[in-house]
């Protein structure tokens, strides 16, 4: 049976409010470009087909994110996501702090205080390897915890932490490079004792 125009209009009225959020999530998962746009469209089509399962008391944004994540993993995620990260998430945390300490010393961290990070974040997200980006997307954009992300990707929690922390460190490096480029500040090393 063909649904009424009112049914479609009501669906669009509620669900398209979250189009910017779904777009951000799709881009962070799939990277910028045609795949992300296709993923947004497929998310909405899958949501429409599954509208009978949506409980209006639930958070529509989270529901759309779950559909987007499912569509990404089923149809877009490349099978080869084997990357050599090592099981060293604590060292990635440490390296993140070392990088920030150097940025404090050379002034680039202070320069970022006055900047809108949004454009730089988008550029940085597009530049990091997909294996790291997809974990950052699941956790930091989609709100998954480590265990959820591990289950979604079919990898151990330890691998999620390693990839997530490496991805964040790479993003931080990009942001600090952005600040340095803006201020022509030379990076310096600093130890943390």
């Amino acid at each position: 049976m063909t649904p009424s125009p009112e049914t479609l209009a009501a669906f669009e009225d509620v669900m398209l409010r979250y189009l910017p959020d779904v777009t951000r999530y799709a881009r962070s998962l799939a990277g910028p470009g045609a795949d992300a746009d296709d993923l947004v469209q497929e998310t909405y089509l899958d949501a429409w087909r599954g509208r009978g399962t949506f409980d209006a008391s639930r958070d529509a944004r989270k529901w759309l994110f779950a559909i987007c994540r499912h569509a990404f993993i089923k149809r877009y995620r490349k099978a080869h996501r084997e990357v050599a990260v090592g099981d060293t998430p604590e060292l990635e945390s440490y390296a993140t702090a070392v990088g920030h300490a150097a940025a404090v010393r050379d002034g680039s961290a202070a320069r970022l205080d006055g900047m809108d990070l949004g454009p730089a974040i988008n550029k940085a997200m597009a530049s990091i390897p997909a294996a790291f980006r997809e974990v950052v997307a699941l956790v930091d954009v989609g709100g998954s915890d480590y265990a959820d992300a591990a289950q979604a990707l079919g990898i151990p929690v330890g691998t999620v932490r390693s990839r997530l922390f490496r991805g964040r460190r790479l993003l931080q490096e990009q942001l600090l490079d952005y600040a340095r480029d803006a201020g022509f500040v030379a990076p310096q090393a600093q130890e943390i004792r």
Binding site: R24, S28, N122, M125, V136, D140, V141, L171, L175
Partner: peptide, 8 residues
């Protein structure tokens, strides 16, 4: 940074 990622 995490706030900026979530609201890019």
């Amino acid at each position: 940074m995490l706030g900026a990622i979530a609201t890019a």
